[in-house]
Design a protein around this nucleic acid. Sequence first.
DNA 1: CGCGATTTTGAGAGCCGTCAAGATACGTGG
DNA 2: CCACGTATCTTGACGGCTCTCAAAATCGCG
Lengths: 245, 245
Amino acid sequence: MRDNRTPCDACPLRRKDHFRDFSDSELDFVKSFKTGELTVDKGTAVLLQGAHNAHIYTVLDGWAMRHVTLADGRRQVLNYALPGDMVGLQASLFDEMHHTVEALSDLTLCVFSRDELWNLFATHPGLAFDMTWLVTQEEKLIGDHLVSVGRRSAEERIAYPVWHLFTRARSRDMSDGRKLALPLTQQHFADTLGLSLVHINKTLRKLQDKGLFRLSNSQVEVPDLDALNEFTAAPAVEFSPRPFI
Amino acid sequence: MRDNRTPCDACPLRRKDHFRDFSDSELDFVKSFKTGELTVDKGTAVLLQGAHNAHIYTVLDGWAMRHVTLADGRRQVLNYALPGDMVGLQASLFDEMHHTVEALSDLTLCVFSRDELWNLFATHPGLAFDMTWLVTQEEKLIGDHLVSVGRRSAEERIAYPVWHLFTRARSRDMSDGRKLALPLTQQHFADTLGLSLVHINKTLRKLQDKGLFRLSNSQVEVPDLDALNEFTAAPAVEFSPRPFI
DNA sequence: CGCGATTTTGAGAGCCGTCAAGATACGTGG
DNA sequence: CCACGTATCTTGACGGCTCTCAAAATCGCG
């Protein structure tokens, strides 16, 4: 945890169109709710499956991944967390974590105390409401993911997270509109989509040959996002500023 | 919606060990929050994917299923709802539904007004907290489901919902410990697990030949729940009274 | 420049899907 | 109570999507 933390007053996320702003009272509370800032290197596990943790986090900068590891080593990625996303809340409010949260890039997190969560609900129903909304959004994302893994072909499956991550990253101004730095290996795609690494590689080639996108050097380039969206057969998402804490 | 509704004072769920009781103040609020009761026949869609709905529901009696239907007709079941589970909240707090909720049996639901939700957060932080907890639990269940579909073999996959539904139903006193009325067809299993109906049928036979359970006449019989749990390789769940609204 | 991580490619096997048809159970009306 | 239509379950054959195994090529980093 570092001293030179980002003051909430000057939170870079608040300035982005994607996120809604706080009221003065809410901002004051969040400032006190935030107990510190955590910066970890790429590859670090921030929250560990099976462990208890006294903190809740919001991603301030970087990419994280939530995943479950089975006893025999098989892994399943649940979701990716981008700036503005909370992690540590989802498992369940006070039980042990059911999944691991790992940094995919160098990662900066705002740290909140779990003990203060009740206080948030008691004194700031608006923020509590926002938090619940965020959890329902997470549930929706995982549900969509489940639909993909359960019912779509390999080609459709791969296209979905490319489009999805690109769209989410763009709304956070992480992309210039066509290119995006994407810190995922093909193994990540495999563990996300329930496919083998080899099959991911071959299917990825087919999709790139179709011109839907281009992956290289940890970068994605999407020439036509609408075409990619149509290929995934996923409903396009509407845009309205979303809350964050 | 019927007139002879179940009064919250005499809610049959409150009496079960599985659910925690309300404080007097909470009970009063929930009584006013509940605007009616809805009883529908087996097969009825209570909430429709793509539609808006002014209500939130809690299952009072019966089985429901939450599922997504793709444009070409492929279906993916997200989860099953049993007495005490909320439906209609998850999609997202005020947007259109992203999935359908359908009655698997004759189904009775408590009806709550979405407009009052804000009031709940403003005046009863305890209930708001419970509601958030319920959503995180749903997210956990869907996450576990995703792990199953993404990373487990057909045999492991099928065993999981049998164990899971049996355990959940038993905690609601719907089973005598060995037998349970389970209103699922093999097609439901297929749509739940991302497998074909034919393959479900053949795998189901193998598992029954192993003696893990027996399905017939819409009944499951599980001779040894622990053995089944071990086979699924899913972590057993601890028991503590959970909230409901 | 050298080593580990990641990507790529090929071959062969097998799990699972599709197609098809028959058997059984269930609900409804006569 | 029986007849009949529909839903559900069962079984077999066959094809293909995806897996595993294996090895080479390329990339990334110190």
